[in-house]
């Protein structure tokens, strides 16, 4: 149930996620090592356009990647009709994007 367009979207989103995931892990280790409190972390991220772009692009890539991956699993497991499958894929994409965008907004907005 993957055509070239969806395949490329999933691969490109994976490529975007790789450096962002490594950056996220590195940042967590740094924060823990330095003993930063939640308040101190938020003081650094709130109002930062760079962090908003960092986690915003991560959320967008995750939403695309996970929606396509789940689409394949749902189709191969349950042989769902294409129209329903498209609706479910879009729902997963938009749901993840909404939840992720809310989290990014909470952490980076002033």
């Amino acid at each position: 149930m993957l055509d070239l367009r969806l395949y490329m979207a999933q691969r490109i989103s994976a490529l975007i996620m790789i450096p962002l995931t490594l950056g996220h892990i590195a940042m967590m280790i740094y924060a823990v090592q330095g003993g930063l409190s939640a308040g101190e972390i938020l003081a650094r991220t709130q109002g930062s356009l760079a962090w908003m772009l960092f986690y915003g692009s991560f959320v967008a890539a995750v939403s695309v990647h996970a929606a396509i991956g789940l689409r394949v699993i749902l189709f191969e497991s349950f042989k769902i009709k294409e129209t329903i499958l498209n609706a479910l894929s879009w729902t997963v994409f938009l749901g993840l994007l909404y939840m992720g965008a809310r989290a990014v907004y909470a952490v980076t907005a002033l």
Partner: peptide, 9 residues
């Protein structure tokens, strides 16, 4: 080979 049932599956 790029159609819905193509190699990418």
């Amino acid at each position: 080979v790029s159609q819905k049932g193509g190699c990418h599956n």
